[in-house]
């Protein structure tokens, strides 16, 4: 669940960054405004996401990828 939220926020950040790019390409006063607003949004979202990840890690909702796999561990060595 937390992972899904995190990934969604990352997508939102990428979209904001993309709108910034569109603003940059457009140029002029309108483009400059659009770029600046999108980048402000992207910075705010990033800071929020960072704090969220730290909080989630602190609360134990997500774990660092030390323990990765629920996949069955290989059976014990078979001597041949």
């Amino acid at each position: 669940m937390t992972e899904v939220v995190i990934v969604l926020i990352i997508i939102a950040i990428l979209v904001a960054l993309g709108f910034g790019l569109i603003g940059m390409v457009k140029g002029g006063k309108a483009g400059s405004d659009k770029m600046f607003k999108s980048l402000v949004l992207r910075v705010s979202l990033s800071v929020f996401l960072f704090l969220l990840v730290l909080f989630a890690g602190y609360m134990g909702w997500i774990e660092p990828n030390v323990v990765m796999f629920d996949a069955p561990v290989a059976p014990a060595p078979v001597q041949k």
């Binding site: 960072f50 990840v53 990828n65």
Partner: peptide, 11 residues
Amino acid sequence: WLGLFIFVYWL
């Protein structure tokens, strides 16, 4: 980097 921090270290 944010992507790296989240995908390499966490998820």
